[in-house]
Design a protein around this nucleic acid. Structure first.
Length: 728
DNA sequence: ATAGACATTCTTTTT
DNA sequence: GAATGTCTAT
């Protein structure tokens, strides 16, 4: 025990050993405000170990919820390092993972088929599109993305279609479509991410006996990254916790970076209201970063209003100054990163202990190019994930059909991939018949195949072939082991042959092999190893199953995915207005503050060395943009920073103080030297050739011109995207 | 029916 | 620039 608690500072100690009851007998809830690098995960895991070791909790009676899979894994690893217990049976996981577990166990009570499938956002969008098409709704009128967003936003508030208040015509329409969407999901036996939570939440209201059972079981609920929870997640927690269960939540309002996804700062306030006598513990001592880095982070975050208030400090020295580099172009910025990274590596810093951070994934390309040319090993997080690759999704779709052939989404995805002569017309027939009879596409297809199979000339092709294939897979699912089944599906479906024939198919084949490997790994590790569980795993954990995670590689990632990590040296790149803070964020009220929190997260990832860089010119979406330094740079006291000179003689860097001159409050994004377009002007387009402007319309990003091209005729072009050059 | 050209659209972050 | 959707030629 002493060993468990040794080395904790007074606040950490208090959090870990906080009694479960208040003197009054009320449950003692706690809100631990844990600054970056203040030992948050340690407190959480040590408390769990402490509760178990002192007999105040059993591993079985405790639930710990995290936001990401990464955090859940880390927590499990640390717990099993501290305690001689098998953590597998413990309820430690993400909100979605735990809800999935709950719904699998009680699918009947939740009104779900035993083998319900999980839609990731891609699948969800596809379903929305299919729905709109089926209802003959013009995609111009109701953009699928907006509907998807509307549905998720409602669900994340805990609202079903019938409960959404619709004031105007448009929202009434959206609500109708939301209802139709849910019906479609039910027909297909599929569940989207938000639905996992909403179902589990409703399950407890609908089934009081079950609710009581779980309330009695989980005498302890601990929540990580509380600032990132949304409304529904909080409601779910409250319902599960009941009156008698103390909630132990850990969070940092300054690191709330998912408000855009419905994470609600309100939850922090509601927590205070809902838990009278709760204990507030602030962890402010930072064990990660040098003084200057913390000073910079504190200085930046101070510009936010409505904070719960927290200031990081350290007993460490000030350390080095932050290094600022202002490049002329994004390529030069990338080169700078390459040079510094190599220099640091020569000094003995392992590549894996350095990270390059950026605001958006699109920025990684230039960096990757420079690193690749220089032969620096690197690894990119995020981007296209393993289970999101098209070949993997195709294979998974076949497997999903083996589990549940009524899954129309999966069926549409692969009924003609690889091509087996089922074209748009055939599919259209299937669809209309399915709509008319209220059955799934699979049922219609099977009926058709049977009817035709009676005819003597029934050669197995087209629909018949497909139906036979799926039936074969269904039979195989019962007979083969998981990896064997995956292998069989890849071959029997023709996917393997298809990609073998394709010139660029090699990598895809490798990924399919990797899928078989993933299946055998899953079968070995997971407690449940049937196909349905594997498919759920694929949906919930899109997987960093990224190409060989080279142990000794520089880490490239977005600031979002860097949360919770730390590195010896960190490069925060692209510190430009419009990029970071992102231009989209400037529109909504809390946007800039969220960006600032993001900046705070970025800065606090560094232990010893922190680089800040920007480029005056950047190629983005095929356009050159001329950017002004980020406002966040001005918020860092100049004396903490040292401006680095560029290579060569040209004075291409500005001293820190110079940064403050040209950043006004204006949204500092403009297209440099963007010519004044006017009617009658001659222009050159890379594809359409020469033409003359005949109409101008709109301003800013919406500006469009109509051009009469000598070859290509008359076209409307959006100035923001079209690569038009003026001709004089 | 299908592949491939061509055009259009959207570009923030993720369970 | 990429990914998706649409049109066209086979």
């Amino acid at each position: 025990m002493a060993q468990l608690l040794s080395g904790l500072n007074p606040q950490q100690h208090e959090a870990v050993t906080l009694p479960l009851r208040q003197p009054s007998g009320e449950p003692q809830s706690a809100l631990v405000l844990a600054g970056a690098g203040s030992g948050k995960t340690r407190v959480l895991t040590t408390r769990i170990a402490y509760l178990i070791q002192t007999g105040q909790a059993s591993p079985h009676g405790l639930m710990a919820v995290t936001f990401t899979n990464k955090a859940a894994r880390e927590m499990l690893t640390r717990i099993s390092a501290m305690l001689p217990i098998n953590p597998r049976g413990m309820w430690v996981g993400t909100f979605h993972g735990l809800c999935n577990r709950l719904l699998r166990a009680h699918h009947r009570e939740a009104g779900l088929p035993a083998l319900f499938q999980i839609l990731d956002s891609q699948d969800q969008l596809a379903l929305v599109k299919r729905l709109l098409k089926g209802l003959n709704v013009d995609e111009e009128k109701v953009p699928p993305r907006e509907l998807q967003y509307f549905i998720n936003a409602a669900k994340e508030q805990g609202l079903r279609a019938a409960q959404v208040e619709a004031s105007d015509e448009r929202s009434r329409r959206m609500v109708e479509l939301y209802a139709a969407y849910d019906e479609q999901c039910n027909r297909e036996g599929v569940v989207d991410f938000a639905e996992l939570l909403l179902r589990a939440y409703e399950l407890f209201s609908r089934d009081p006996v079950l609710a009581t059972h779980y309330r009695d079981r989980f005498a302890h609920i601990l929540v990580d990254e509380f600032q990132d929870t949304n409304r529904l997640q909080y409601l779910w927690l409250k319902r599960l916790a009941g009156r008698e269960t103390p909630l132990f939540v850990v969070g940092d309002d300054d690191q709330s970076i998912y408000a855009f996804r419905g994470a609600s700062a309100e939850n922090m306030r509601d927590f205070e209201r809902d838990h009278p006598g709760y204990r507030l513990i602030k962890l402010e001592q930072n064990y990660r970063s040098a003084g200057n880095i913390l000073a910079a982070a504190n200085a930046v975050i101070r510009h936010n209003r409505h904070r719960l208030g927290k200031n990081l400090w350290t007993t460490d020295g000030a350390g080095e100054p932050l290094r600022l580099y202002q490049a002329l172009t994004d390529q030069e910025e990338a080169q700078f990163v390459v040079d510094e990274v190599r220099a640091l590596n020569r000094e003995g810093v392992p590549y894996a202990d350095m990270a390059v951070l950026y605001r958006s994934n699109a920025q990684s390309r230039v960096l990757e190019h420079a690193l690749f040319s220089a032969g620096v090993p690197y690894r990119v997080y995020g981007g296209l994930r393993f289970f999101e690759r098209q070949e993997v999704k195709h294979a998974l779709a076949y497997l999903r059909l083996a589990v549940n052939p009524d899954d129309d989404g999966a069926l549409e995805r692969v009924i003609n991939f690889p091509a087996r002569g089922i074209g748009a017309r055939t599919l259209e027939q299937l669809r209309s018949e399915a709509a008319a009879t209220g059955s799934s596409l699979w049922e219609v297809a099977r009926r058709k195949a049977q009817a035709r199979g009676q005819r003597p000339e029934g050669i197995r092709k087209g629909i018949e072939g497909f139906v036979a294939l799926i039936e074969d897979l269904r039979a195989a699912a019962a007979a083969l082991s998981l990896p064997e089944l995956v292998q069989h599906a890849i071959e029997a479906s023709g996917l393997a042959a298809h990609y073998q024939a394709e010139r660029e198919g090699e990598e895809r084949l490798e990924n399919l092999d990797e899928l078989v490997n993933a299946a055998s790994a899953f079968a070995q590790e997971a407690e449940e190893h049937d196909l349905a569980a594997f498919l759920a795993h694929a949906a919930l954990e899109a997987g960093e199953h990224q190409a060989a995670s080279g142990a000794e590689a520089l880490q490239l990632m977005t600031v979002h995915s860097a949360k919770g990590l730390e590195f010896h040296a960190v490069f925060v790149t692209g510190l430009e207005e419009g990029l970071f803070p992102h231009e989209q964020s400037l529109l909504d009220p809390g946007g800039v503050e969220e960006e600032r929190r993001l900046m705070y997260v970025a800065l606090t990832r560094a232990r010893r060395r922190l680089y800040l860089s920007l480029a005056q010119t950047r190629m983005l979406h095929g356009q050159t943009r001329y950017n002004v330094p980020s406002r966040f740079l001005q918020e860092i006291p100049a004396e903490l920073m040292k401006a680095l000179g560029g290579r060569g003689a040209a004075p291409r860097t500005a001293p820190a103080s110079a940064l403050s001159q040209n950043t006004g409050p204006e949204p500092a994004f403009r297209l440099a030297g963007s010519p004044e377009w006017h009617v009658g002007q001659s222009v050159l387009h890379p594809k359409f050739g020469r033409g003359v402007i005949v109409h101008c319309e709109g301003r800013g990003p919406d500006a469009r011109v109509q051009v009469r091209f000598s070859e290509a005729g008359v076209k409307w072009l959006a100035l923001e995207y079209a690569k038009l050059t003026p001709v004089h």
